[in-house]
Structures are given as structure tokens and as C-alpha cells.
Nucleic acid binder design. Structure first.
Length: 594
DNA sequence: GACTACAGTT
DNA sequence: AACTGTA
């Protein structure tokens, strides 16, 4: 086998130069900034954002008292009795701000490569913008340069001093003169151009941070030739400055002193594995240098060590990371999220009614988010800037009249296909330490019933039907033992968005049309039997005839087919039950009604 | 320890 | 479709 080339572990991997310019923005203590901007007087007091019993984050006033993120409320209060606590459990205000900043940055991208990492970090690949401006540069008058932000409109841009890097750089004592030593000119030229590219990146970053600041937010930024280095560089001068990694071509001296845990992609599991390989328990010894120079560390060895959890090629990837090489591209901005999930943790949800309550709760907020993220207002089309009046709009258009449905005002930009429920048991503090905190996490997915896409219906009704018809059965399937029931986590997630593609019903217009029909169908059937008559066993056909005005004969077929696909329709409540859950659902009726 | 969200791999 | 890992 050609497993590992003995050489490969010795010398640093051969690098073909990375010629990209990557920016990494990081909004410092993001939640706190959001809250502070909404209530400016909080800027001067120690502020903590709490989720359950811990601090998600806190502002710098609080930090000066020794408070740290992820600290328990009690300890934080002890350290800083004046600590003001804000509730951070509803993420929607944070998401709104995050989206605003994200679209700001996106609007400056030429290639659309704008990747969001969590709510408070954004990668930007600005290689093209920088290359364009590199050509524009007048090398005889660097001090008065013009940075062009638009190819079409040369006026759009800003003046800057291209003789110096904007913000901080690394290494600090920037050995400006590109060493005109012995080496051939090609290398020098390369190095010069690399330096200039990064320099241009630094000015763009500076400008963009100013724009973010106009929105009221401060940020840090890292400028380098790949995502790994950009992210790590940004850490150097947090929270409110930027750092350009000028030595991108030989990052060893930059990376070597860092603890391994700092490397994005190396988490707790990987650290544990590496401890074995490096034969150390001392965390101080767990630096990039230690791993990089240890002969036991080779791509193949790492692969053997880490591939247990699945990932193929992870050994190679980690090893390259240790050498400062990260080939990961900044992924193009996605129009719709890949998945939407809501979860909540509990201190032992034990009874069915409590569980139901919890499910209703998170399902409602899931539905709200689906509307926020996936429903587009047709009339307003491409209005990206929601700059106005978003401060405190009183109750958005929450289900405006079921009856007087305005024709085609709003529509789904994507429809998730599957619904997943995840639960985790609750362990009382006494037996807590016997398991890791995620022990016992289980999940199960089903097709997402289509009636959730009904825009004309009351949210409440949809939630109710989803919980009772789908989620509770799902829950029973996951937790068959109803005797010893104690839940620590509920998570509901919709995935498999279709951007108008394959899936269960072809792509394009026809499919969309058919899907719309289905929605109307199901809705007619559903509400027919829910609201009007408690639960008579009406023939589906009858109800359809009555409720769906514009229906043709086609539609009846669809109802049939859907029954076949998704399962069977419960005669008691009218829900479509996946076959596997039919029995559990039946039990639910017994328990619930009896 | 304790929170929420997301994504990659089988 | 389920699980695992990470920020």
C-alpha cells in the first residue's frame, strides 16, 4: 500500500501559493451589543445575556469584573453583584441584526462568496475585488490611492493610503522591505504582490468595519490568504481592531505558539485523540508546534486516530491545518438556510401534558421563523433593506383573517421536506457526571406535513395539528417508555429545503402548482373536520367539495396520493399519520382524551 | 458544567 | 434517516 510516503511527515507540505484574500469578521460579544443598542443606557453597566442558568455572553464592563461568557449566573452575580441580566433566550432579535450585517457585507461582494458562521461571524472572499484594485494601483503615488468598490461606477469607493497596512498587522514589526536578497526575482515579485494584496484587503476590511459601525456595531477582522489564517489573525487584536497576517506564506511562526484547541475544526474530541498521540496531558504542551514537529503526527496517523467518528480524509485536513493550509472555500451566500431548528432545554419534563406544552412552544417559534426566513412578500419583491420602522413593530401580520385571504401576497421561497424531532433525557445533578451532557440524544424524522405551508391559516391551528398529529407520535416513538419519562431537551428541526428541484414531485412550475393545490386540499380537509364539526367521520370527498372553491377533479387524486405517501389519515382528528407512528398516535388518543 | 444552532458523514 | 462534532 502506498499509505504514507515517509517523506511527507518530515517536510512541510509543498505549497502552491494561495492567492486569495480572505476576510473574517467577528462581532464582539454580539448579543450584548444587540441589547445595548436597543437600550443604550446599558452600555455603561455590566451586562450579561442569560440563557437558562448561564451567561451566553456579557459586555466588557462585566468582563472587567471577572465575568466570563458561559459562566453560571450565580458565580457571575457573586463576582459582580450589580450585573444586569438580559434575557437571551429568544434569538430572533439577534438573528435580525445578524442578517442586517450579513447583507451589508454581502452587498460589497462581487463574487457572492460570503459565508456566515453562526450569528456573529462572516467570511468574505474578496480576491477579485482586491485583484481589480491591485491593477489600478499607481505605484508612484501610493499615499493617495482610490479603492474602487464597483466595476461599473468608478466613483463608488474610498480614498486610502496604500503605503501602509490599515489597522494592525502580524508580525508587529512588519519587516517592510521585501528582502531583496539572493533569491531570484520571481519570488520577490510574488512576495511583493502577496503583500500588496493583503494590504488592499486590510483597507477594504477597514472600510467595511466602518460601515458596520454605522449600523452601531463594533467588530474585529482578520485578513489573510485562507479561512483558517483569517480567523486566527482576527483574534490577535480583538475586540475592536483588525489584523492582517502579512506572513501568510510562512505561517509556522504565527501558528506554532497557539494551543491546538484554537484551531477551528479541532474540538474537544480531536483534542482528546491528539493527547494520546502526543502522549501529553499537560495542556500547555498542546501547541501547534508540538503537534507539527512530533514525528508521530502524520496525515495517516491522524486519519487512523480520528476517522473513528466517521469523517474521511480528516487526518489529512487536520494535518494541513497545522501547517497553516486550508483549502476550504468561502461558500457562496445561500439564499435560504439549509435547515431551521428550534430547541429548548428543561429540567425534567415528566408528564405528557408538560411535554405537549413544550412541543407547542417550540413548534410555534419554529413556525414563526419559517415565516420570517422562508416566506417572501410577493408585492415588495426584492426589497433587501428593511431599514425602516423595525424597532418595535406591534405584532406583525399575524394570520390576517383566515377568510379574506388576499390573493398571492406572500409565498414560500423554499419548502422543507422533512421534520425531525430530537430529545435528550434529563439527568438530575446527582447522576449528571456519569454521562456526557449529550448522552441519550435521539432523533427521528418524518415527512413534513404540507399543511404547515398554508399561509392563510391561523398559526395556532397549524401548530396544534403538527404537535398532535406528528410530533407527539414522533415523541412516543423516541421515548416508548412512558413510565420513566424525563426530558432534558426538545429540538424540532425542518430540513431539506427545495429550491425548486427534485424530491417528491419534480421541479419547476408544474410541481409548484401541484404542491399549491395539495396545500389547499389538505387545508380544506383539515379545517373542515377540525373547526366545523369536532370530529365527524366525513368523507374526504365531501369536505373537499364544500371547502375548495376552485377545485377541479384533479384534486381528489392528490388527496388520495398524499394519503398513500405520508401514511394514513386519522379518523378522530384528521391528521395524516406516518405509518410507523399510527399505533403510538392511537395510544395518544386514548391517553389524551380518556 | 450548560445553551442553541448547524452541518458533515454514514 | 440517524448520529456526531463544533462554534
Amino acid at each position: 500500500m502506498d499509505m504514507d510516503n515517509p517523506d511527507s511527515k518530515r517536510k512541510a507540505p509543498r505549497r502552491k501559493r494561495d492567492i486569495r484574500v480572505i476576510l473574517h469578521f467577528d462581532l464582539d460579544c454580539f448579543y450584548a451589543q444587540c441589547i445595548e443598542n436597543a437600550n443604550p443606557h446599558l452600555k455603561l453597566v455590566p451586562l450579561g445575556i442569560k440563557q437558562k442558568s448561564i451567561l451566553a455572553t456579557c459586555n466588557y464592563v462585566a468582563r472587567s469584573h471577572g465575568v466570563r461568557k458561559l459562566m453560571g449566573i450565580h458565580e457571575a452575580k457573586r463576582l459582580c453583584p450589580d450585573l444586569v441580566l438580559a434575557d437571551g433566550e429568544d434569538l430572533s432579535p439577534f438573528r435580525d441584526v445578524s442578517k442586517k450585517i450579513y447583507s451589508l457585507l454581502k452587498s460589497y461582494s462581487w463574487n457572492g462568496r460570503v459565508e456566515r458562521l453562526g450569528l456573529d461571524e462572516v467570511f468574505l472572499d474578496v480576491t477579485d475585488v482586491v485583484a481589480y484594485n491591485l491593477e489600478l494601483l499607481n505605484h508612484h503615488c501610493l499615499e493617495q490611492s482610490w479603492f474602487c468598490l464597483s466595476r461599473e461606477d468608478p466613483e463608488r469607493g474610498f480614498g486610502f493610503d496604500a503605503s501602509a497596512v490599515a489597522g494592525c498587522s502580524w508580525p508587529l514589526d512588519d519587516p517592510d522591505p521585501i528582502s531583496k536578497d539572493d533569491d531570484d526575482d520571481d519570488d520577490d515579485d510574488d512576495a511583493l504582490r502577496l503583500r500588496l494584496r493583503l494590504l488592499l484587503g486590510s483597507h477594504l476590511a477597514f472600510y467595511l468595519r466602518q460601515q458596520i459601525e454605522h449600523l452601531g456595531y463594533t467588530s474585529a477582522c482578520g485578513i489573510a490568504t485562507n479561512k483558517l489564517l483569517a480567523k486566527l489573525a482576527g483574534d490577535k487584536n480583538k475586540p475592536q481592531n483588525q489584523t492582517t497576517l502579512l506572513s501568510s506564506h510562512s505561517p509556522a511562526s504565527f501558528l506554532d505558539p497557539l494551543p491546538l484547541s484554537k484551531i477551528p475544526g479541532i474540538g474537544s474530541k480531536t483534542i482528546t485523540a491528539l493527547k494520546n498521540l502526543l502522549k501529553t496531558d499537560n495542556d500547555d504542551n498542546l501547541t501547534v508546534r508540538a503537534a507539527r514537529t512530533n514525528p508521530a503526527v502524520s496525515p495517516a496517523a491522524l486519519e487512523r486516530l480520528l476517522a473513528g467518528g466517521g469523517e474521511r480524509g480528516i487526518g489529512q485536513r487536520i494535518w494541513l491545518l497545522l501547517h497553516g493550509i486550508d483549502t476550504g472555500e468561502v461558500k457562496p451566500a445561500r439564499d435560504v438556510p439549509r435547515q431551521i431548528s428550534i430547541e429548548d432545554t428543561y429540567r425534567g419534563l415528566a408528564s405528557l401534558s408538560h411535554i405537549r406544552e413544550g412541543l407547542v412552544q417550540i413548534t410555534a417559534s419554529l413556525l414563526r421563523r419559517m415565516h420570517v426566513d422562508l416566506v417572501e412578500d410577493d408585492s415588495t419583491e426584492h426589497v433587501t433593506t428593511s431599514s425602516v420602522s423595525s424597532t418595535s413593530s406591534p405584532a406583525p401580520p399575524a394570520a390576517t383573517t383566515t377568510g379574506a385571504g388576499k390573493k398571492g401576497r406572500r409565498r414560500w421561497t423554499a419548502q422543507p421536506k422533512t421534520l425531525r424531532l430530537t430529545t435528550r433525557p434529563y439527568y438530575p445533578p446527582s447522576e449528571r457526571d456519569r454521562y456526557e451532557y449529550n448522552h441519550g440524544r435521539v432523533s427521528k424524522s418524518v415527512a413534513l406535513p404540507r399543511f404547515v405551508f398554508d399561509l392563510g391559516a391561523e398559526t395556532e391551528v397549524i401548530v396544534d395539528r403538527l404537535v398532535e398529529g406528528t410530533l407527539l407520535p414522533l415523541f412516543h416513538a423516541l421515548n416508548p417508555d412512558s413510565k420513566r419519562l424525563s426530558i432534558g431537551l426538545l429540538n424540532v428541526c425542518v430540513t431539506n429545503m427545495d429550491g425548486g428541484n427534485d424530491g417528491g414531485g419534480g421541479g419547476d412550475i408544474v410541481a409548484a402548482f401541484r404542491r399549491q393545490k395539495e396545500v389547499e386540499e389538505v387545508r380544506a380537509v383539515a379545517y373542515g373536520c377540525l373547526s366545523d364539526h369536532d370530529h365527524d367521520e366525513e368523507e374526504d370527498g365531501d369536505v373537499v367539495e364544500e371547502e375548495a372553491e376552485e377545485s377541479d377533479m384533479e384534486e381528489a387524486e392528490w388527496v388520495e396520493e398524499e394519503d398513500e405517501q405520508d401514511g394514513m389519515r386519522c379518523r378522530l382528528c384528521g391528521c395524516v399519520i406516518p405509518f410507523f407512528a399510527a399505533e403510538a398516535h392511537g395510544r395518544w388518543h386514548e391517553v389524551g382524551e380518556g
